[in-house]
């Protein structure tokens, strides 16, 4: 900067004049536009550069947290357990069987279409699976993982890995307390409306095996979750019937 100052004392002085609003009005306007463009490009570029340098760590962290969601749903990891990235990967490798279904698509956590994938326990006949569920919520895409016991036809756990619902209202679907409402519900039969799991007004589900308390004040989110939950289970049952074991 100082070197430039010695070479062209006129340019910097001129820039300061234009910045203070003096001089030819058209030049002042032009200077303002160029200044904003240059400064935006500079700071935007700096941020992009840092982002592209560190994005691989972020993606790695996301992968680990996805794996941990599945481990928790399969009962291989406790809810409040702290597991390193390395341990997560090795437990996942040793104990989790990954099934991909050719020709079937699902929405991934990044919102993009991906090959339908579900998870089970390696070398076990327990009938416990973690299946993908996805669909529209109130504000945007909701992607979740549902743990089901196919021998009892019951839900054993649920987690939402991506959603844009209102914090404190629809966003509560990620809360432990709300997620627990789904546990132990049976998806064996369909009701008159074709629903296996019914989300009903908060506080009215009681001990019902197929009804789940929705979230008061988040009707949009609740009906979205009801829809995507039933659709997800239907699709999984259809895929399993198709002969893929």
């Amino acid at each position: 900067m100082s070197e430039q100052n010695q070479d062209n004392p006129g340019i910097l002085a001129k820039m300061r004049t234009y910045a203070s609003g003096h001089g030819n009005p058209n030049m002042v306007r032009l200077y303002t536009i160029i200044y904003v463009l240059v400064i935006t490009a500079f700071f935007g570029g700096a941020v992009s550069l840092l982002n592209s340098a560190l994005i691989k760590y972020k993606l790695e962290n996301e992968k680990v947290s996805q794996q941990q969601v599945i481990l928790k749903l399969l009962g291989l990891m406790k809810e409040d357990q702290d597991l390193s990235a390395k341990d997560t990967a090795s437990i996942f490798e040793d104990k989790v069987e990954t099934y991909t279904v050719e020709g079937r698509r699902m929405k991934g956590t990044d919102g993009k279409s991906a090959e339908y994938t579900y998870y089970g326990l390696k070398g076990s006949e327990s009938g416990l699976y973690v299946i993908p569920i996805w669909g529209d919520g109130f504000w945007g895409l909701i992607v979740g993982r549902l743990a089901i016991d196919t021998s009892k036809e019951e839900i054993t756990g649920i987690d939402f890995v991506r959603h844009e619902e209102t914090p404190g209202l629809g966003g509560r679907i990620s809360d432990e307390e709300v997620r627990q409402r789904f546990v132990g519900k049976s998806y064996a039969t369909k009701d008159a409306e074709g629903l296996r799991i019914d989300l009903v007004a908060e506080g009215t589900a009681g001990d019902s095996k197929t009804k789940v308390d929705a979230i008061t004040g988040a009707t949009g989110t609740s009906s979205g979750v009801e829809k995507l939950l039933n659709a997800g289970i239907d699709l999984f049952i259809e895929i399993r019937k198709g002969g893929e074991k």
């Binding site: 910097l12 820039m15 300061r16 234009y18 910045a19 203070s20 609003g21 002042v28 200077y31 303002t32 200044y35 904003v36 400064i39 935006t40 700071f43 935007g44 700096a46 941020v47 840092l50 982002n51 560190l54 972020k58």
Partner: peptide, 24 residues
């Protein structure tokens, strides 16, 4: 060197850039 009329926009831009760096 910052034109007075756009100084607040420039300030927000600078602040936002640093905050996004922290977030990244």
């Amino acid at each position: 060197y910052t034109p007075r009329r756009v100084r607040m926009m420039v300030q927000i831009l600078v602040i936002a850039a640093y905050v996004i760096m922290v977030k990244i």
